[in-house]
């Protein structure tokens, strides 16, 4: 069940992510749960504290507590910034001190609609064509897919670390760190 997207939007987005970071001999955006990352971001304020900044100082993957799972609270202005970024100014006077802002929710709603309700069903080549003509929107989805694939799994993507495994990357390493020998040797 998506948090913010409709089921149909979620299907379109999943298909789009799968073209941007495809599955080949290693996992791609679908395996990593990129659509869940994006849906979680768009619906970040549906939970408290919002799912913007994972906690610290360790994730538990290399020792220490699972601190990333406890998301951090936002300050007053930080909440304003993230509501502007996600929800847009949406008529709130305090959000448009430099003019109106279009939020990601609106951009995703419009952008996914522009890909067509049949997007998930059409051929890959046709999907790529539509993604190319969606220009700026595709660039936004791609940025988010990259964060989903190679960011910490606590944000909803990089499921079971598949993104990191695919590229031979250890991810967060505290509190273990790297030994002097690991740092200085080939």
């Amino acid at each position: 069940m998506p948090v913010w997207l409709t089921d149909a939007e979620y299907r379109t987005l999943s298909a789009a992510c799968a073209r941007l970071i495809p599955t080949d001999e290693t996992p791609g955006a679908s395996d990593g749960g990129a659509a869940d990352y994006i849906d979680g971001l768009l619906g970040a304020f549906s939970v408290d504290p919002p799912r913007i900044w994972a906690g610290g100082p360790t994730s538990g993957r290399h020792g220490g507590a699972r601190g990333f799972e406890g998301f951090l609270t936002l300050g007053r202005l930080e909440e304003l910034a993230w509501r502007m970024r996600i929800e847009g100014s949406d008529g709130h006077p305090e959000r448009q001190f430099n003019g109106p802002v279009t939020g990601w929710q609106q951009r995703y709603r419009d952008g996914l609609a522009s890909l067509g309700s049949d997007f998930a069903q059409v051929e890959g080549a046709e999907q790529d064509e539509r993604l190319r003509s969606a220009g700026d929107f595709t660039a936004l989805v791609y940025e988010h897919c990259c964060e989903a694939m190679y960011g910490a799994p606590e944000y909803g993507g990089n499921r079971d670390g598949v993104g990191w495994d695919a590229i031979g990357y250890a991810g967060d390493v505290q509190p273990r760190g790297w030994t002097d020998t690991e740092v200085s040797s080939p």
Partner: peptide, 25 residues
Amino acid sequence: LGHFSNDEVKFFHRHFLGPDPLIEP
């Protein structure tokens, strides 16, 4: 406080340490 972490999303892509360019451009 233990808020610092090896987290690229938070520090590098989500303005964790500010200034947020929407609030303080």
